[in-house]
Design a protein around this nucleic acid. Structure first.
Lengths: 201, 201
DNA sequence: ACCTGAACACCGTTCAAGT
DNA sequence: ACCTGAACACCGTTCAAGT
């Protein structure tokens, strides 16, 4: 039933995940759901846990930097599949079983690479802040999948008083010709952080 | 009345900002609020705009790096005053007047520093992803203001099966002795990004 | 111009009652 | 063990009616 809630969120957005709507989907009364779940909070925690479980754990076959990069890319893919994921994880805790083993494996990889416990914790926080933060910005900024990013840039350009916001207009102009590459933008910031961490070793 | 909604959110959390509760505060019926605001969405957009307006715009008296640092620190302070801020901005757009001039000034500072429009856009996105992301993690992870961070670490340590999560236990052990410094953790990642950007110039 | 009262279509949750 | 129906205390929003 947590699965059904995830499907519903994927299709119609997290705001449509309602005990009543979920019951409707499962051909059952909303009240009946309480036989399988303690309440809506419990349901959402279950969804968070399943989403986090979809993120690839850092592999031990490659060096720490490559392992961190792959995990970051995997997280981005998961949040593309489940666009409500990053937001839900942010707004609820990270204390489920999947989150714990995720944190343990990431920290383990960093410790093995030679980072001190304190630096490893800071590095973990910096990386995840960026990964989740990027996703949140994306879901509120980037064009829908079927839209042309250059068209969106053009619309922005038209909507903005260009003399009042010259720099914004300048950047929008740039994207009105070259299409916006989401993955490249993600890699840009990710590499800044990873390269910086490497220099600390 | 947007102001009153902000005070209410500061005191009791964003989830308690309700048309009915807000009306109660203002000594008025919930329905009356619709004479001053188009709907709840409109109200929330207004709150976003006022929060963004509280973030210091990058100063032109200092170099780009210091200007970006100050803006980041200012944002962190604002989100400490309004703990619902980062989440609300993430979940709604960034298209209000304050957000536009904020974006314009940040991009302008980066362009003046010599970054190309494309790099400036990526740098802006990387910095803001980190700033907002850090804040979201913090609000779900860090101890309440009155709690001792070492105590929290100790509790985590007790709650975790240490043999199953050795790396997590190792890091928690670290924070059971040295207290967690929120500002230092923020600066750590911020400097990684800023130093990396400087190297690109 | 602004407010109120009542209504509508929704929520999450509980609980006695059924099978 | 699981489900249903009805109820409760909430939501956002609309609208005729009042001042």
């Amino acid at each position: 039933m947590v699965r059904a809630a995830m499907d519903l969120a994927d299709e119609s957005g997290i705001e449509s995940v309602t005990m009543r709507e979920l019951g409707r989907r499962l051909g059952v009364e909303a009240a009946s759901l309480y036989n399988h779940v303690a309440g809506k909070d419990d349901l959402l925690d279950g969804m968070v846990d399943l989403v986090v479980a979809e993120i690839d754990l850092p592999s031990s076959d490659v060096d720490w930097k490559e392992a961190m990069r792959r995990r970051a890319v995997s997280a981005r893919e998961v949040f593309t599949r489940h666009r409500w994921g990053a937001g839900l994880i942010d707004s609820r805790g990270r204390s489920g079983p999947s989150s714990l083993s995720y944190a343990d494996r990431v920290l383990g990889t960093l410790l093995e690479a030679g980072f001190s416990p304190g630096i490893a914790a800071n590095a973990f926080l910096a990386l995840d802040s960026y990964i989740y933060g990027f996703e949140r910005q994306r879901s509120s900024i980037s064009p829908a999948d079927d839209e042309d990013s250059t068209e969106v840039a053009q619309e922005v350009l038209d909507a903005i008083p260009q003399d009042a916001f010259p720099s914004l207009a300048c950047v929008a102009m740039e994207y009105a010709t070259k299409p916006y590459d989401d993955a490249a933008a993600f890699d840009f910031g990710l590499d800044l952080i990873l390269d910086g961490l490497q220099r600390l070793l």
